[in-house]
Design a protein around this nucleic acid. Structure first.
Lengths: 344, 344
DNA sequence: ATTATTTTGGCAACCGATTGACAAAAAACG
DNA sequence: CGTTTTTTGTCAATCGGTTGCCAAAATAAT
């Protein structure tokens, strides 16, 4: 602790600069800059000399100094509302990986709780990032549109006109789910719905309704609800009261809550009640019985969202088009243990 | 899309600068800087005028421009190895909240998988942050020490000489756990251990061993293992073979895996096998039966780690001392449904 | 009213890169 | 060998703030 000369103090914490390199290599700082960031611009010999000097000084480019003239920070933000929600795990993983591959750093922002916190965090983060992936947010369409005017945004699982989004096609999964229930012999099903203003919630319910109708089943919506484990538990009575034999929930978390509550109340899942979750998120197979669920390709969603964002940022027309026109990701039904023939 | 003048193009994406404000308010840019960042330095009247102008132009300070001369970015990094591990949820929450309160932004870095990825990510992040909280890492002591020479680090649940850490006292929880098992009538217990080089793993096992000995129980270590759900499942046979009636696991994830595997194999938990997890992490009460576990104050851990880091950064002697000398956080036994009298 | 003191605001240098313009050096050409 | 073209490296301005230093203005003290 006594003789570490340049540690932690002063505005140059850890710092060899291109000027130091220039000195050591006997060239002009701008030459150093070019050698390091515009390969080919400088003769191989000089470049080698500079790289050696940089290596020797353990040089790291100062991201802020670079960001200032270029306006590019190589930082991407991924916003989520609730780190506790397993849906994001794989989205984060996918995004993180693609970002890292491209030399970008992912800034993960959780805005638990209030909308105002979320707005504030966003305001703080916005100036530092090149672009935003919004995985979930309670923020309104207008604010998102306004942000979209200054920085590119990719929306995940939400649609707003004029904003780029990545949302998997929910149709195949829902069609299969309803058919699955029908084939098991269910006649009356419920949708345990999610948040009131959720675009995705509405989309899911509408489609379930349509398919149930087409299949000759009755379908009721129970909700709206916060998309949490707790509300899943709390809704057991309403579901029983509705007289249905099967439930599709807005997400897995709610399904798990419901399943646990039912089990504790002596109601057998799947025999007394079939449950289908949504998302196939991390942990949905940890329950007993493991959850039948409509799976989303979460990892791919994170990857694609990030790739799309990068394509926009790099303005690479070809890649942009390729990314934007790739076939849409699809949901699919994953049958596990929480669905069965209704009793009696 | 037609007439948004200054959107998304050029190095000044969204930007009013202090120069714009200076123009509008009829003062010098430096006066603007002072008015905004050194309250009191400028007369109230001028300051009001400047604030009004800033408001009108919707000014946001450019964090990079500020970081350049000051060397302070108001960014903190929190590194975790596996976003999937529920242990971090509350740590992240706590850290995020304290950081936000103090006007800092938390950069959450997941370095899933390989150590090399982790090193790379770290190198990328390091120059942009004021300090680091390392919640888990596979990185070696030496590298951590070396990082600690350039930026302040707070270690969570790990100890390295010379590096500040926040690690709750595991003693109370472990003492209670062993006593709990003894009182239930167990004679032979096992510790399902975690990663080989984990400091915390060793600490936990040593203490369990000591307490078991003191209580007249036999204790065996089974492992090392990766701290995952999968290894929990895979270790069932070894646990059965060891002839113990109770297991304490390195963490909840392993306990949950073990519990599920046991249940599927027709071994009743808690009647045939008692299981105690570790951490009381998110979801440890979702299982059937809910998991008895040695709880850590995770939220407080995240909060304290962040507060400590901020205290170091701000060099506020009083606050530093207060934070550093606060009573150590403690673990405690949380008795739920996965422990009972051994059968027969 | 005069001097001493404190406030207030401006000037200019600086943080560490990037980049357009240009001149010197090297290579290619006739 | 002289001239044109290309390559290579330097100069200097710039990004948007911060801050030490100083002078003008305002206030206080004598």
């Amino acid at each position: 602790m006594t003789e570490n000369e340049s540690s932690k103090k002063g505005p140059t914490p850890s710092g060899a600069t291109i000027y130091d390199i220039a000195n050591l290599a006997g060239v002009n700082p701008s030459t150093v800059s070019r050698a390091l960031s515009t390969p080919g611009r400088i003769s191989a010999k000089t470049e080698a000399k500079i790289r050696a000097a940089a290596e020797q000084l353990n040089y790291r480019v100062n991201p802020f100094a670079r960001a200032l003239p270029t306006g590019r920070t190589k930082l991407l933000a991924l916003t989520i509302t609730d780190i506790t929600n397993p849906v994001f795990f794989d989205v984060v993983r996918g995004a993180e990986q693609v970002a890292a591959e491209s030399g970008y750093t992912l800034l993960l922002a959780e805005s638990a709780e209030s909308t105002s916190t979320e707005s504030n965090t966003l305001q703080r983060i916005l100036p530092m990032v090149d672009g935003l992936i919004m995985a979930t947010t309670r923020i309104g369409d207008d604010e998102i549109k306004s942000i979209n005017n200054s920085k590119p945004i990719i929306l995940v699982n939400r649609h707003i006109d004029g904003v780029v989004d990545v949302v998997p096609d929910i149709e195949p999964g829902i069609i299969d789910a309803v058919q699955h229930l029908k084939q098991l012999g269910h006649k009356h099903i419920a949708f345990l719905s999610g948040p009131l203003n959720s675009w995705m919630n509405t989309a899911r319910w509408n489609l379930i309704m349509r398919e149930a109708l087409a299949a000759g089943l009755t379908a009721v919506e129970i909700g709206p609800n916060a998309p949490t484990l707790a509300t899943g538990r709390e809704s057991l009575d309403r579901i029983r009261a509705a007289g249905v034999t099967a439930v599709i929930t807005y997400n897995d978390l709610m399904a798990i809550g419901l399943l646990r509550q039912a089990t504790e109340a002596g109601i057998s899942v799947p025999n007394d009640l079939s449950i289908i979750g949504f998302d196939n998120s991390f942990g949905s197979d940890f329950t007993s019985p493991p959850l039948t669920t409509i799976g989303q390709p979460l990892l791919e969603t994170g990857e694609r969202a990030t790739r799309t964002l990068l394509a926009i940022l790099d303005g690479d027309a070809d890649e942009s088009i390729a990314t934007l026109e790739a076939p849409r990701l699809r949901t699919s039904l994953i049958i596990r243990g929480s669905t069965a023939k209704p009793r009696g």
